[in-house]
């Protein structure tokens, strides 16, 4: 029997019995994003010969938080709500060779961890942030979140949402992240390429992935994926009618000095002065 090629990176058996199937609801976007990430990691291990020990996966709280430590056969950490980026900063200081992937949800990044997020972008620390945006708080019962689209119906906005949604990509771009992209779970190859680009880039990379929640949006995953294809438009094709559409694509791709590298310059400077004193 042939099995899924990415199962080699997952922990199927744990000390308390089998860990798979994944805990997510049928058709959840979190499992898909995990699949895309493993495809990108697989290509990086093959093409760039990155060692498996150099990957570190960090997540916060929420549905997206369940992705890392329980299932991945890599170094991983499941941290407190909204503070995944703070833990990532510490890990990067301890070992600058780490290739860090941070899984966060829209509640994790956009609301409780908002300040950690903008300051991680401002400092330009070398992490790849995968923000799974499903537009509501899935784990706690489908309440409306800062990223809920205008007019959407959730359990706490039964007569439709009257607040504008938070645009995390614009926020990251203005805060100074050098690589910002937005895709949906219906764009697998683009997501895989973006994750590879983000991991290769020295600096903060935000990849926002619009994800489906079939349970709280009360639609089949197939319908929701079709909706992602019709309701989004690539940022380079924005000359067409964009009313009611969400922009997807790469919003910025710059080369900037990374946080750890700029501190290393100060360290090197002092090491040089010490050498002179010794002479």
């Amino acid at each position: 029997m042939k099995r899924h090629p990415m199962l080699k990176y997952l922990k199927e058996e744990g000390p308390l019995g089998p860990r798979l199937p994944l805990i997510f609801c049928p058709g959840c976007g979190s499992g898909q994003v995990l699949n895309y990430t493993l495809h990108a990691v697989d290509k990086l291990i093959e093409e760039d010969e990155v060692r498996r020990e150099n990957f570190l996966f960090i997540s916060g709280i929420g549905c997206s938080g369940r992705i890392t430590s329980h299932y991945l056969n890599f170094d991983s950490a499941w941290t407190i709500h909204g503070r995944a980026l703070a833990v990532a900063t510490g890990a990067l200081l301890a070992n600058p060779a780490f290739k860090i992937v941070v899984f966060t949800g829209d509640g994790d990044t956009g609301s409780i961890g908002g300040n950690h997020f903008i300051h991680a972008c401002r400092r330009n620390i070398d992490v790849t942030i995968l923000c799974l945006n499903n537009g509501l708080y899935g784990m706690t019962g489908g309440q409306h979140a800062p990223t809920t689209p205008l007019g959407a119906i959730t359990t706490t906005t039964p007569y439709s949402n009257r607040e504008e949604a938070f645009d995390l990509c614009k926020l990251a771009e203005i805060a100074g992240a050098p690589y910002v992209a937005r895709w949906t779970t219906a764009h697998p190859q683009q997501v895989i390429k973006s994750i590879m680009k983000g991991l290769r880039k020295k600096g903060t990379a935000l990849i926002e992935i619009l994800s489906q929640c079939p349970v709280h949006e009360k639609m089949s995953p197939v319908t929701l994926l079709k909706g992602f294809r019709t309701k989004t438009i690539h940022v380079n094709k924005a000359k067409e009618s964009t009313v009611g559409k969400t922009f997807i694509g790469e919003f910025c791709d710059l080369d900037k000095r990374e946080w750890n590298e700029s501190y290393q310059e100060i360290i090197d400077q002092f090491l040089r002065t010490n050498d002179k004193i010794d002479e």
């Binding site: 042939k2 099995r3 899924h4 090629p5 990415m6 199962l7 997952l10 798979l20 199937p21 994944l22 997510f24 058709g27 959840c28 976007g29 979190s30 499992g31 898909q32 995990l34 699949n35 895309y36 495809h39 779970t185 697998p188 190859q189 895989i192």
Partner: peptide
């Protein structure tokens, strides 16, 4: 391989 890439539960494989 699109079914393998998009499967959320790592359940499908094509030989």
């Amino acid at each position: 391989g699109l079914c393998e890439v998009m499967c959320p539960d790592f359940a499908i494989a094509i030989e």
